[in-house]
Simulated assay, not measured.
Amino acid sequence: MDDDQQESMLPIANVGRIMKQILPQTAKISKEAKQTMQECSTEFISFVTAEASDKCHKENRKTVNGDDICWALRTLGFDNYAEAIVRYLYKYREAERHKANSSRDNREESNYRVFEKGGTSQAEPS
């Protein structure tokens, strides 16, 4: 395998780490097994991404999003993966909304100073 092909692959250390998560702690993984999984997972991701990218191109869009990936998984017959990704994407978007709302609320609170005057609170912009 040449350097260009190696650069477009997922990092083998990450692949190995993911593989170890599912196996018993005493299990060992050969370098060949890690390389095989690296090649297969990289190819799978490229396959799905190409399908999603084609859809975006046909729709004159330049950005592939999570919904495009889910569509591509279904189109390619990976319905079980698509269902899991749809659930993940929903939870991810909810968390991002919550984080954005919390950040906005914190910014708004920091824009005001509270002064005690005569026993009552009064907010004044800073």
Rank of each mutant, 00 (worst) to 15 (best):
M1I: 04
M1D: 04
M1F: 08
M1Y: 09
D2V: 11
Q5A: 03
Q5V: 10
E7A: 14
S8H: 09
M9C: 14
L10N: 00
P11D: 03
A13L: 07
G16Y: 02
G16S: 07
R17F: 00
R17T: 02
K20C: 06
K20I: 09
K20F: 07
K20W: 01
K20V: 04
Q21C: 04
I22G: 14
L23Q: 15
P24E: 02
Q25A: 11
A27S: 14
A27W: 06
K28W: 03
K28C: 08
I29S: 08
K31M: 09
A33D: 05
K34C: 04
K34I: 10
K34P: 02
K34W: 03
M37Y: 12
M37E: 07
Q38D: 09
Q38R: 13
E39V: 07
E39H: 05
S41W: 15
S46H: 10
F47K: 09
T49I: 03
A50P: 00
S53G: 07
D54E: 03
K55G: 06
C56Y: 06
H57F: 08
K58V: 05
E59Q: 10
N60C: 10
N60S: 12
N60Q: 12
R61L: 04
R61G: 05
K62I: 05
V64H: 15
D67R: 13
D67V: 13
I69Y: 01
C70Q: 08
A72Q: 03
L73K: 02
L73N: 00
L73G: 02
L73H: 02
R74N: 11
R74Q: 07
T75K: 09
L76G: 04
L76T: 09
G77E: 02
F78D: 00
E83H: 15
I85M: 09
I85H: 01
V86Q: 14
R87P: 02
R87Y: 14
L89M: 05
L89E: 05
Y92W: 09
Y92T: 03
R93S: 10
E96H: 11
E96K: 15
R97F: 01
R97P: 00
H98I: 11
H98N: 08
H98G: 00
A100K: 13
N101E: 13
S102H: 06
S103Y: 11
R104M: 03
R104K: 08
D105C: 11
R107C: 07
E108W: 00
E108Q: 07
E109H: 11
E109N: 09
Y112E: 03
R113V: 13
V114W: 15
F115D: 14
E116V: 08
K117A: 03
G118R: 01
G118V: 00
G119S: 01
T120N: 12
A123K: 07
P125H: 00
